[in-house]
């Protein structure tokens, strides 16, 4: 009886809020040019991507080919970027400390694009990445929760003192290894490297205020579910970008529209404004940012954490059934390539 009364009392509370996927009419707009460029202070291949905005249901960028792209310093010296792949413009260069740089270019349709000059920020240390084996509760898009084993990657770094505000963003690439089985005497088993197989979860930003005392960060930068993809070797290529404030604010705004989850504290979304301007005043989306960069490679083998994870294709005596198609042809996996990462052991 007591239980029955409790149930009746609870009835109103069981009828909690609901999140449902719906159809809503969307008026597609004409595509706009999107600039996605980072110019770092490291001597490496610098990459600027030019593409078009795409439909809401799509994820495949539409590259824009045939643009003329330069990075120009405060004295007018230009670094020319060449189109290596469609829409990807590269140069071997670096941003020098103390200099200012901006993007200058001409689109295939003749419009000229440019940004304001940006200082070259100093890098901030990325000293260590440690892993923690943990149990987490995740909620999927329909609101259902479940608990899973995961590896949390924590990045840390510090300085003895800091004179100015630091605006930092983490970015990363992941890669795991999969060795094919012996499936046919006529085909040699290959080893594939699968890049970025899961969606980027979070826009990870850190703001550090000036201090006379040691100051730094210790931040969760990546969470990976422990499954067969972690059964051989998993790599996290972590980058830490140090931004100027204006470019950092762009990423803060991006995070607001990226992190919508129906919470009553969700911010009202708005149209992002990038820092690239077109000569005719038309809209250009995206950002070109001059950043200080540091990086860290973290390789994780199954032996590095207590939870057992078998490789994708298993081990003798413990083969998955049915055998995944990737075990005979690993290139079927999204993001798979035979190109071995430079940092791979």
């Amino acid at each position: 009886m007591k239980n029955k009364i409790q149930y009746l009392l609870l009835l109103p509370l069981l009828c909690i809020a609901c999140v449902d996927q719906i159809e809503i009419p969307i008026n597609p707009e004409d595509p706009v040019i999107v600039v996605d460029g980072i110019f770092t202070n490291l001597e490496e291949t610098q990459l600027i991507k030019i593409s078009e905005s795409i439909a809401l249901e799509s994820q495949v960028p539409i590259p824009v080919s045939g643009a003329l792209i330069y990075v120009e310093d405060q004295d007018g010296n230009r670094i020319s970027f060449t189109e290596q792949e469609e829409g990807n413009y590269t140069a071997e260069a670096r941003a020098e400390a103390g200099n200012q740089y901006r993007l200058v270019g001409t689109l295939p349709d003749g419009r000229e694009i440019t940004t304001e000059l940006q200082e070259t920020p100093e890098s901030f240390p990325l000293k260590d990445v440690r892993i923690v084996d943990t149990l987490v509760t995740i909620t999927d898009e329909s609101g259902d929760s479940r608990r899973i084993h995961a590896i949390d990657f924590y990045a840390s770094g510090a300085v003895n003192s800091l004179e100015i505000d630091k605006y930092l963003r983490f970015s990363h690439e992941t890669v795991y290894q999969i060795r094919e089985d012996f499936c046919s005497p006529f085909v040699a088993a290959k080893t594939c490297y699968v890049y970025n197989d899961v969606l980027a979860e979070d826009i990870n930003l850190v703001r550090i205020e000036p201090s006379n005392a040691p100051v730094g960060y210790n931040k969760l930068v990546h969470r990976r579910r422990i499954d067969r993809t972690m059964g051989e070797l998993f790599g996290l290529d972590l980058r830490l970008y140090s931004y100027n404030k204006k470019e950092f604010d762009y990423w803060e705004n991006l995070k607001l529209v990226f992190d919508q989850n129906g919470n009553i504290t969700d911010n009202i979304p708005a149209r992002i404004e990038g820092n690239v301007r077109a000569s005719d005043g038309s809209e250009i989306q995206g950002q070109f940012a001059v950043v200080g960069k540091t990086g860290f490679i973290k390789l994780v083998a199954n032996a590095d954490f207590p939870t057992i994870a078998l490789p994708v294709c298993g081990i003798p005596g413990f083969r998955p059934n049915p055998r995944p198609a990737a075990c005979c042809s690993c290139l079927v996996l999204k993001g798979a390539t035979l190109v071995r990462p430079e940092f791979w052991p």
Partner: peptide
Amino acid sequence: PSSTIIQDGFVVPLYS
């Protein structure tokens, strides 16, 4: 949103 853009691997809605 009326379309999406891609920034550093993030698929971001572009609002109208």
